[in-house]
Design a protein around this nucleic acid. Structure first.
Lengths: 214, 214
DNA sequence: TCCATTCTGGCATCCAGTGTTATAAATTGG
DNA sequence: CCAATTTATAACACTGGATGCCAGAATGGA
């Protein structure tokens, strides 16, 4: 009802009232409308035109808020990336690299019961719809960079160092497996699955390790 | 010069002469024409129409040989998948899971000097062009299934088992990191990079392990 | 020759994504 | 209150990948 005034809840600078015409909607509102349609009728079956209609704006405006149709599903992924980077940077210097990544990934993936339903819809779409599986590789690129940069710092190496990139790619692989598994089997919080997958890696897939058998 | 007669060099059944009109070209020829154009002018800058013209066929026919533009870059990836599956199946039953995967991946990625140039073009495109990075997630899906099925057999578990899927995703991560690194830094055979990346994982990223420091 | 089969080309269509332009809604300054 | 400026939106046109459909070309067989 009240106009969305760009919902800037962050600690901002001096509050100049915004200059021109106010946005008629928010990213959040558009994404929510899209997700409902995708969940109800399927991603491929829903056109951007229909999302626009549901959100009460024009097709062209959708693409000003989101660069691609696939990005409608990803919500505020960039924010999560920042939290991950902070977690990594704050880790004690003597903690082993992969342990830090493991802790950080798990820590940034705790969700309240309220957000779980929406999260499951998102992850199910991302891990099952081919167009979204494909797109995820692009979003994960930034994730890889964050983790690889951290690993490179710890190894005193270049961000393109094979070891640093491998740490990142492997961590992403474990996280992807965990999320895929969580979305398919109706668990509760995805954090335990994440921790278990990362533990397997940290143990080097040693078949004698109890963590593998648990 | 001579007509391409569907180049079926495999050990076939009884040789009925093919029935209807013969194909005017081959997948190989089309892919080669496409790769040249992509390398020369860029992937996004080249339209399927131009590939068709270079291959001497119509745009529509391109999409009968290849389901998407991106698949033009992937060549005979399916064949490689079969070889990987065979390698995995032939491994001794007492060899640790990840060691088997490591050996199989390395073994299926030896290339003669003649094929290296084309491989590097392919991998460079796949790891740098956003549309191809995205598409790769779809092709790797089949790769994941092959490795996960192997791991599941070894673990006497379901193919969707978290451990099996994690093994597959993590192996793919390591392989991706290796290939990415190989394409960027002009090495020779990608196999050593693959082996090194997989060794890091097998060692659990233990910083005291010599394999990590080498 | 007539027929069945296989491949190709051309056309129409859908949809995601982009550039452009006009217009609406808001603030600032007179 | 009016004009200038700024920002957001809508409407339109256009590109290019992908798909369905159908007519026609090219082959072997009866």
């Amino acid at each position: 009802m009240d106009r969305p005034v760009t919902e800037d809840a962050s600690a901002g600078g001096p509050r100049h009232p915004p200059r021109g015409r106010r946005p008629s909607t928010t990213r959040r509102q558009i994404a929510r409308a899209a997700l409902e349609l995708f969940a109800a009728h399927g991603y491929e079956e829903t056109t951007v035109e229909q999302v626009a209609a549901a959100a009460g704006i024009s097709r062209r405006t959708i693409f000003r808020y989101f660069p691609t149709k696939a990005d409608l599903v990803w919500g505020e992924f960039d924010d999560e990336l920042e939290r991950l980077a902070d977690q990594l940077a704050a880790a004690p210097a003597d903690e082993p690299i992969f342990d830090v990544v493991r802790r950080a990934v798990v820590a940034t993936n705790h969700f309240g019961a309220g957000a779980l339903d929406e999260l499951r819809i998102r992850i199910t779409l991302i891990t099952t719809v081919p167009a979204l599986v494909a797109h995820s590789a692009l979003r994960y690129g930034a994730w890889l960079d964050v983790v690889a940069r951290f690993a490179a710092r710890r190894l005193d190496a270049d961000p393109e160092d094979l070891r640093a990139r491998t740490v990142a790619h492997v961590a992403l692989g474990a996280a992807t497996a965990a999320y895929e598994h969580w979305a398919a089997s109706g668990g509760d919080d995805p954090a335990p699955e994440l921790d278990r997958a990362m533990a397997l890696v940290a143990g080097g897939f040693d078949a004698d390790d109890a963590s593998v058998r648990s």
